[in-house]
Amino acid sequence: MARYNLWQNQNLVAAAEALSPAARAEERGAFFGSIAGTFSHLLWADLAWMSRFEAGEAPACGVTGSAALFADWEAFKAQRAETDARILAWAHALGVAELASDLAWYSGTLGRDVTRALGLCVAHFFNHQTHHRGQIHAMLTAAGARPGDTDLFVMPEDVGR
């Protein structure tokens, strides 16, 4: 799933490059507003989860500020690529036994401490990415961009290797 994440983020970012900055920022009725806002939220969430998985620093804002966190497109692309490489390295090092352990963190969204199985959190992490990339894909298509394939079975073998 980390390889798929990398592949699809590259796919959607490349498709979004065909749009003007105004088209990426245009309000489209999605939960995070625009293509750019949804990309920003997704990167924010990936960084938040990676901070939990690796016991590192979380993004400076909460979910309500996530759509505006990465407003500069070039900076977003650089951070997206860096984060995807980080996710890939983390996933390659993750062991099966670790997935059965618990992960504990403070959830700003829920306003309380949470403990869940790491395996469930990892499944949520990748599912969340797919959910929001689906929204981005729909907005890109409606805006006239043409993302590439998204089917897992057609992912090139060399992605992320």
Rank of each mutant, 00 (worst) to 15 (best):
A2D: 15
L6Y: 14
L6P: 14
W7C: 04
W7Y: 15
W7E: 12
Q8S: 15
Q8P: 03
N9Q: 13
N9P: 11
N11G: 12
L12C: 09
V13S: 09
A14L: 09
A14Q: 15
A15G: 09
L19V: 00
L19A: 01
L19N: 00
P21L: 11
P21C: 05
P21G: 13
A23F: 00
R24N: 04
R24L: 03
R24Q: 10
R24I: 02
E26T: 07
E26L: 08
E26C: 05
E27F: 06
E27G: 03
E27R: 10
R28S: 07
R28E: 04
G29W: 08
F31Q: 12
F31I: 11
F32S: 07
F32D: 02
G33P: 02
G33T: 12
G33R: 02
S34D: 04
S34V: 04
I35Y: 00
G37F: 01
T38A: 06
F39V: 00
S40M: 09
L42D: 07
L43F: 10
S51L: 01
S51W: 00
S51G: 10
S51D: 02
R52C: 05
R52M: 08
R52D: 07
F53A: 03
E54M: 14
A58I: 03
C61T: 15
V63C: 01
V63S: 08
T64I: 01
G65Q: 02
G65N: 03
S66A: 09
S66G: 06
A67T: 02
A71H: 14
W73R: 02
W73C: 04
E74A: 15
E74N: 12
A75M: 07
A75H: 09
F76W: 11
K77G: 04
K77W: 08
K77H: 01
Q79V: 13
Q79F: 02
R80K: 13
A81G: 05
A81N: 06
T83Y: 07
R86P: 14
L88M: 05
L88G: 12
L88A: 13
A89V: 09
W90M: 04
A91P: 01
A91E: 15
H92G: 09
L94S: 07
L94H: 07
G95S: 13
G95N: 11
L99T: 06
A100W: 03
S101A: 12
S101K: 10
D102A: 11
D102S: 11
L103Q: 08
W105H: 09
Y106K: 01
Y106W: 12
S107F: 06
T109R: 09
L110E: 15
R112N: 03
D113Q: 12
V114T: 06
R116I: 08
R116V: 12
A117D: 03
L118V: 01
G119T: 09
C121P: 01
A123N: 08
A123C: 06
F125L: 12
F126K: 08
H128I: 13
T130R: 05
T130F: 11
H131I: 07
H132E: 07
R133I: 13
I136F: 10
H137K: 05
A138G: 14
T141R: 14
T141C: 05
A143P: 00
A145Y: 00
R146D: 13
P147A: 11
G148F: 08
G148A: 13
G148P: 05
T150I: 13
L152N: 08
V154Y: 06
M155C: 12
D158G: 04
V159M: 09
R161K: 14
R161E: 09
R161F: 05
